[in-house]
Amino acid sequence: MRRVGELIGALLKNPTTVAGLTFIILLLGMAILAPLLTEPNTPDAYQMPRDWGAIAVPPGSPGHILGTTNVGGDVLYGVIWGARTSLRLSVIVVSLTVVVGVTVGSIAGFRGGRIDEILMRIVDVFLSIPELIFALAIAAVLGPSFRNIILALAVVFWVKYARIMRAQIIHVKENEYVDAARVIGDSPWRIYLKDVLPNSITPVVVQATLDMGNIVLVGATLSFIGLSEAGIAEWGVLVSEGQAGISAGRWWASTFPGLMVFLWALGFNLFGDGLRDILDPRTESSR
């Protein structure tokens, strides 16, 4: 939107933000180029290919650069297609939660009164249960599948956006430019779209960036526990597959996917923090 060039310039000045951005670009590149980097498994590319002739081979083995798991899954394939799975998970969950959270928060903040009271009490109920436990409970009730993990995470993560959005809107709608728009005779809906929403959305963007990382972390945890389908190319599942071999010295099956989860979460957190510093409304007006 405004001053896009300035924004990018400021982001590139901060080394940790650049590091975060680098991780993100590498991981996203890997996710997007997955079908080119490895031969997709048939019929479902998101399922791990099994090489029963090479079980638990170490990294550097021919045809299995990062080795295989003790059920013959190629770790490299899991790492690359796992990035694609993670991207799918985080994009779907963040989109759903941002839409729901922003809608609920906007109605509560913009309308106020009784509706606000009711919606915020619902939000309080959701917030009172720890994220991971809540997601775990929902996913467990729904049964083990990747789709249910998406659902469980969406149910848990929308409340934060509702809270942030409501607080922002209550603050922004007191601005005189909102009064000025009312004096002109503009409708509440257009005042919301033109004046309130664009001036309230920044913290939501920051939170969404941070959540791109957090969701993959929590998602991998749920998969690790076994709430995903077995055999899916997903980092959490892979770590879980490999953990039995760690005591026997077969470190590679867990380490590489674990490292990927770490880098993914780190990348989005570093970038999100940098974004927050730059978009902070207190420093914004001075520039």
Partner: peptide, 23 residues
Amino acid sequence: WRRYRRNCQVVFQESFASLNPRQ
């Protein structure tokens, strides 16, 4: 109401706060 809205306008004290910073 529309006639009144057209004919009665306001100039606020804080020029910065009364102009949408993103427009």
